[in-house]
Amino acid sequence: MSAAAIPARTPRSGLRALLSRQPEWAVAALALGLMLVIGAVNPAFWEPANLFSLLRANVVTGILALGVLLVMLSGGIDVSFPAFAIAAMYLTIKGMIAVGYDGVVLPFVVATLIGLGLGLLNAVFVHGLRMIPLIVTLGTGTAVRGLLLGGVSASQINIDEMPQRLIAFANTQLLTIGSGDGHVGLSAMVLVYLLIAAGVHLLLRHTLAGRGIYALGGGEEPALRAGFSVRNTRLLIYGLAGALAGFAGLLHGSMIWVANPRDMAGSEIDVIAAVVLGGASIFGGRGSVAGTMLGVFTFVLLTNSLIIMHIDTTWQRVVVGLVVVGAAGITAWRDQRRQRGAGRGVGS
């Protein structure tokens, strides 16, 4: 028999092969291109103050995006995480004020656990009742937000009441440039973000549980036959996505010095846009931490640079919409070509 009779359809070398195997490079190239264009329109883009603030803006969106990535890898979608994030943040801070506690580690643990619990609720509905994730998370998100606003409180906690050590932690700076009034610093939270991303990367890439998430995205039946526990995998996915949201929520409140229970409404679309831009497929099984981080970076770059580009910020929604449609369109086109490729030679 001749083994060469079974060629793969992948181009084996060159740029196309690279992009086919690691689409992250395409997103990276896009980000770089955008930076060059924006920098050419307004050289102020390259000033450290702007670059640092861009990186800072990556943190919360990025952590949330990692959670969405997990859900999308399994072939689902999550729109409940902003509500979970804000609920975890608000409840934690409210609790801290009530008992007069000020600290850093314990609050983050509590917020993460609240998020975890809410995420597990999603898992129960998605796995136990076999319901489409979009509809489940639409329901849990609205219910949680409604309960928070109606059952707890709808008023925001301002900086004078916020736990001071939490704020101090969130505003730690890694390095500063310049001095006096003109000095700018890079938020240390970027480091937190990188650590979490590295953790999720290790999970997805180097643990069997993580590979189980990809396997589930490839197909539930094969995953079952191979011996994965689909139930446990779903609990992991939605639980971890919830936990990441809880953590990101508290970080968000600490970074902006305000705990507003109405915050982040509608931000699910931005985060989903960033994840899709990073190459993850809504059909599951495709996407990576690196791609998602690049997607978030590109997305934040695009939406935060409108002012620098002298474009009215009212255009932001239009830009976000175009990003979603464009990125999803490219993914659909790629999937269709793939299907057509695989469909050949079938039949009798």
């Binding site: 679309i269 846009a273 809504i282 009212t314 239009v318 919409g321 175009l322 979603v324 449609v325 999803a328």
Partner: peptide, 20 residues
């Protein structure tokens, strides 16, 4: 394009145009 993503995207575009 998956209906979820297509209409999330166009929803943003329509809202965005209204805002502009």
């Amino acid at each position: 394009i998956t209906p979820i993503l297509a209409t999330i995207g166009t929803g943003q575009i329509f809202t965005g145009i209204a805002l502009v």
